[in-house]
Simulated scan of single mutants.
Amino acid sequence: MRALIAAGIGLAAAFALVLTMTAVGAPPGETSPKPLHTTVPAHP
């Protein structure tokens, strides 16, 4: 029974965190128009 209560408290805390982040909104700024390169270009 204690495990169920602990899971409920954890779920409520996670839900509260999501609601808080939603209420705060995204940080101001713009994304870069340039694509992000994650691989090293091959040299001939």
Rank of each mutant, 00 (worst) to 15 (best):
T22H: 05
G10H: 06
L19P: 00
T38Q: 06
G10L: 15
E30H: 12
T22M: 14
V40S: 07
L11H: 02
T39A: 09
T31L: 10
T31R: 10
G29Q: 07
M1V: 11
A6D: 14
P41E: 09
E30N: 08
R2W: 06
H43W: 08
R2E: 12
G10M: 14
A13D: 03
V24R: 14
E30V: 04
A12W: 02
L17A: 13
V24K: 09
T38L: 15
F15S: 13
V40K: 06
V40Q: 02
P41S: 11
G29S: 12
I9P: 00
L4V: 10
P35R: 05
T31G: 05
G25C: 12
T38V: 13
I5D: 11
P44Y: 04
T20G: 11
H37T: 07
L4W: 12
P33A: 06
P27R: 13
M21G: 04
L19N: 01
G8R: 11
G10E: 13
P27Q: 08
A3Q: 13
A12L: 15
A7G: 07
G29V: 01
P33K: 01
P28N: 02
T20F: 13
P33F: 01
A13K: 05
H37Y: 04
A26Y: 09
T38I: 12
T39I: 08
P44A: 13
P41W: 03
G10D: 14
G8Q: 12
R2Y: 09
P41F: 07
A13N: 05
A42S: 08
K34M: 07
A23F: 14
T22F: 12
A14D: 03
F15K: 00
P27T: 03
A7Q: 11
P27E: 13
A6T: 10
P33N: 02
A23P: 00
V40I: 12
A23R: 13
P28Y: 01
T31E: 10
P33C: 01
G29I: 03
V40M: 09
P41I: 07
T38H: 03
P28H: 05
T31A: 05
L4N: 07
A7R: 11
H43R: 13
A14Y: 05
G10N: 15
L17F: 03
P35E: 10
A12T: 06
H43T: 15
I9F: 15
T31M: 05
T20H: 12
H37R: 10
M21H: 01
S32Q: 08
I5P: 00
G29E: 04
P27C: 03
H37K: 09
T38W: 04
A3M: 03
S32R: 07
A12N: 02
A12E: 00
I9K: 13
M21S: 08
A3P: 00
P44S: 07
M1W: 05
F15E: 04
A16G: 08
A6I: 07
H43K: 14
A7W: 06
P27W: 07
A23I: 11
A13S: 10
G25V: 05
P35K: 01
F15G: 12
V18I: 15
A42L: 13
A13P: 00
K34P: 00
P28F: 05
A14G: 14
A23Y: 14
P41C: 08
V18N: 01
I9E: 14
L19S: 07
L17H: 00
S32D: 15
